[in-house]
Computed example of a mutant assay.
Amino acid sequence: MGVETPERKQKVCLVTISLAGGGAERSTAVLSQMLTSKGYYVTTAVVVNAVDYEYSGSLYAIGSGKKSFGFISSFMRLRRFRSFLKREQFDLIIDNRSRPENFKERIYSGYLYKGFKLLYVVRSFRLATYFPASKPLAHKMIDRALGVVGVSKAIAKAVKEQYSTAKVYQVYNPVPLASIQAQAGTKMMAGDYIMAMGRLYDDVKNYSLLLEAYAASKLPANKIQLFLMGDGPDKVKLQDKAHVLELDKMVQFLPFNPNPYPFLQGAKCSVLTSHYEGFPRAVIESLAVGTPVVSVDCQSGPAEIIQPGENGLLVPNYNVAALAEALNNIIFDQELLAKCRQNAKTSVAHLDVDVIADHWDKLIQELL
């Protein structure tokens, strides 16, 4: 007997910078899988033709493997993309890109997307990343669209308040529990360590705070290492800081890995120290493999995921002493650590792809 396939619904085009490198890109790849599972025809259009993550449906490359193009070349690419959108007659476009540039967004909103039903997704609390500086243009973009989807309650609230619109919806980032746990496997990585993962970009991830708190904690003296996984422009800067803090032998810089889950699963805890987030995948993926999280209470996301003392610890941001104390507490209080490990997986069950796929499906059907 063949496998039943869901009844086909509308055609959806997801627009994103790429399917490589970051949490927003991974979330878009997962969104393509969720919508396909609900019966939609999905095409993911990428500005940069780079793919690290598994996706479902078809792929359309707006650009090549690099971000910068000449003006004429860029215009021709966008013109071809407009023709592609019209030819395919998509029922809905979901734009996941960052959108800070006035000129570019006039082209996307007023030309590329003209005549199409559109949703904008905001994946960071730093709204300036997802809306252009021109407030009139941002209002016009929202007016032309079906609405804006925020991936956390805090983001949805901020969009409503800053742009005076009721056309805002909230759908959390999902976590594919079964897939992540399968990729993690059953074998733990060797050694005692804590872990943080993400792009090595200190203006966002604030790994300097993590290094300072780790140095101030009891972990180095107890031979518990810190793994930083990811690539980015600040790798040398952070390596230099680790050297100044005399942590050369205790901090390991690991390259980006599309399957970080065996490392996460083997960690005593994971840590997030960002200046700002959206709904951080690093936190929910850590909990998905049973690893508690120590996080700063940044805007936004951690406070909507972490239940202090139940699946991790939440501390005030920019406080080295508080973060160091939290690391000591979760590592050396065996009862607390065991409790948080026991609760970790169930604490993100409501974020499983099947649950969030239903939320997306319901929203799309209501709007279309």
Rank of each mutant, 00 (worst) to 15 (best):
K135P: 00
P136G: 12
P136S: 11
P136D: 11
P136R: 05
P136Y: 07
L137Q: 10
A138G: 09
A138T: 10
A138V: 05
A138H: 05
H139V: 11
H139A: 13
H139M: 12
I142W: 05
I142L: 11
I142K: 02
D143Q: 13
D143M: 10
R144G: 15
R144S: 15
A145E: 06
A145I: 04
G147S: 11
G147I: 12
V148Y: 00
V148R: 01
V148T: 04
V148M: 08
V148I: 14
V149D: 03
V149I: 15
G150L: 09
G150K: 06
G150Y: 03
G150T: 10
G150R: 03
V151Q: 02
S152F: 02
S152E: 08
S152W: 00
S152C: 09
S152H: 01
K153R: 14
K153I: 11
A154C: 09
A154L: 06
I155D: 07
I155M: 07
A156M: 09
A156Y: 04
K157G: 13
K157F: 12
A158V: 04
A158Q: 14
V159I: 14
Q162L: 13
Y163H: 06
Y163G: 00
T165R: 06
T165L: 12
T165I: 12
A166S: 13
A166R: 04
K167I: 12
K167V: 09
K167L: 13
K167W: 07
V168G: 02
Y169F: 15
Y169R: 06
Q170N: 11
V171W: 01
Y172M: 09
N173I: 07
N173M: 10
P174W: 00
P174S: 15
P174D: 11
V175P: 01
P176H: 07
L177K: 02
A178N: 10
S179L: 07
I180S: 02
I180P: 01
I180A: 02
Q181M: 07
Q181F: 02
Q181G: 07
A182R: 09
A182Q: 13
A182F: 03
Q183V: 02
Q183W: 03
Q183D: 08
A184G: 13
A184F: 02
A184N: 05
G185M: 06
G185P: 00
G185Y: 01
T186I: 05
T186V: 08
T186G: 09
K187I: 14
M188A: 13
M189P: 00
M189V: 10
M189S: 14
A190W: 00
A190K: 12
A190T: 09
A190P: 03
G191A: 03
D192W: 02
D192G: 08
Y193F: 14
Y193N: 05
Y193W: 08
I194V: 15
I194R: 01
I194L: 09
M195A: 15
M195T: 07
M195S: 11
M195L: 15
A196S: 15
A196I: 03
A196G: 14
